Computed example of a mutant assay.
Amino acid sequence: MIRVLLADDEAMVRAGVCAILGSSGVTEVVAEAGDGREAVELARAHRPDVALLDIRMPRLDGLTAAEEIVRTVPGTAVAMLTTFSEGAYVTRALGGGATGFLLKSGDPYELIAGVRAVAAGAAFLSPKVARYVIDQGLGGGRLTREAQARARVAVLSPREREVLGLVGAGLSNPEIAARLHLVEGTVKAYVSAVLDRLGVRNRVQAAIVAYEAGLVES
């Protein structure tokens, strides 16, 4: 069972999200917070698998709370669940260590799939957000980004590039292991090596490189 901390200042929204996640049979909301500060405190107390945070909350906004949880509760994956998909929010969330960015306007299945993905160590972005990330890439014009990305992945071994492509496709470590007929520990080592050699902080940023380098069909 995936243990989830849900933080949103609207009780009706929390009730709806809890109902959706509860219907999945694989997720359980173990704590609810009405503001960002409470979310950080509950994350430290409950150590959930996933912290699902709204952006605009009192006392402490969701983006700051996400950064604090990533820093102080390393075993908890963070995903944003919000109505706001502005580029500045997406950039800060992913740059701060969040591995999921979901929109409240999305399909309920998307919410469940997103929580499962980030809990498994993969990245998950709502389609609208994913398009923004792909279009924006790592800065500069698209042709420049593609050239930069190809140069960056050139230092990787063939197996590392293969792993990077699967990370870019949103696969978790167990799924990559099954696809490549490797043990999960080996895949974890490959992913760590890829992140280090690319100089990126997390799987979302690695996925951007994979897209720009043409390792994943957008």
Results as ranks from 00 to 15, higher is better:
Leu42Lys: 08
Gly62Ile: 08
Ala45Arg: 15
Met57Glu: 15
Glu67His: 10
Arg44Cys: 15
Arg44Trp: 06
Ile55Pro: 09
Arg44Glu: 14
Glu67Phe: 07
Asp49Tyr: 10
Arg56Gly: 04
Thr64Glu: 15
Asp54Thr: 12
Leu60Tyr: 13
Ala66Gly: 05
Gly62Glu: 12
Asp61Val: 09
Ala66Trp: 03
Ile69Pro: 06
Thr72Tyr: 00
Pro48Phe: 00
Pro58Lys: 09
Asp61Cys: 05
Glu68Asn: 11
Arg44Ser: 11
Gly62Thr: 12
Thr64Tyr: 07
Asp54Trp: 04
Asp54Leu: 05
Thr64Gly: 08
Leu53Cys: 14
Leu60Gly: 12
Asp61Tyr: 07
Val70His: 02
Pro48Glu: 00
Asp49Lys: 03
Leu53Pro: 11
Leu63Val: 11
Pro58Ser: 13
Leu42Gly: 09
Leu42Arg: 12
Gly62Tyr: 13
Pro58Trp: 09
Thr72Cys: 02
Arg47Thr: 14
Arg59Met: 00
Met57Ile: 06
Ala51Tyr: 12
Asp61Leu: 04
Asp61Gly: 05
Asp54Val: 10
Val70Leu: 04
Ala51Asp: 09
Ala45Trp: 05
Leu63Pro: 06
Arg59Ala: 05
Asp61Arg: 08
Pro58Leu: 07
Arg59Glu: 06
Ile69Val: 00
Leu42Trp: 01
Arg44Lys: 15
Arg44Asn: 11
Asp61Lys: 07
Asp49Ile: 00
Leu52Tyr: 04
Leu52Asn: 01
Thr72Pro: 00
Ile69His: 01
Thr72Val: 07
Asp49Arg: 02
Ile55Cys: 14
Arg59Lys: 14
His46Thr: 07
Arg71Leu: 06
Glu67Tyr: 11
Arg56Leu: 04
Val50Ile: 12
Val50Tyr: 02
Ile55Glu: 12
Ile69Glu: 01
Asp49Ala: 10
Thr72Phe: 02
Leu63Gly: 08
Leu42Met: 05
Leu52Trp: 03
Pro48Tyr: 00
Ala45Glu: 15
Leu60Glu: 14
Arg56His: 09
Ile69Leu: 01
His46Phe: 04
Thr64Ala: 15
Arg47Gln: 15
Leu63Ile: 13
Arg44Val: 09
Ile69Arg: 03
Asp49Met: 04
Ile69Asn: 00
His46Val: 03
Gly62Met: 10
Arg59His: 09
Asp61Ser: 06
Gly62Asp: 10
Ala66Phe: 02
Glu67Arg: 10
Ala43Ser: 14
Asp61His: 06
Arg47Val: 13
